[in-house]
Amino acid sequence: MTDCVECGAEVSLHDDLEVGEIIDCTTCGAELEVVDTEPPVLERAPELEEDWGE
């Protein structure tokens, strides 16, 4: 568990967390980026850019 940087609600995290992964806050819907795993640290994920995709 860690806190959402947007709304402060608790965010549950799964075991195989990866740096760079995006987690959705189930309370406020914010997209949060995992920037560290030990201990877990979340930041607000970057906004979608126009040239993103596959």
């Binding site: 195989d16 990866e18 760079g20 992964e21 995006i22 980026e33 995992v34 994920a45």
Partner: peptide, 14 residues
Amino acid sequence: LYSRIRKDEKLLLT
């Protein structure tokens, strides 16, 4: 090389 780890990248990493 990444900027976001999606499920696709997690599958490859695993």
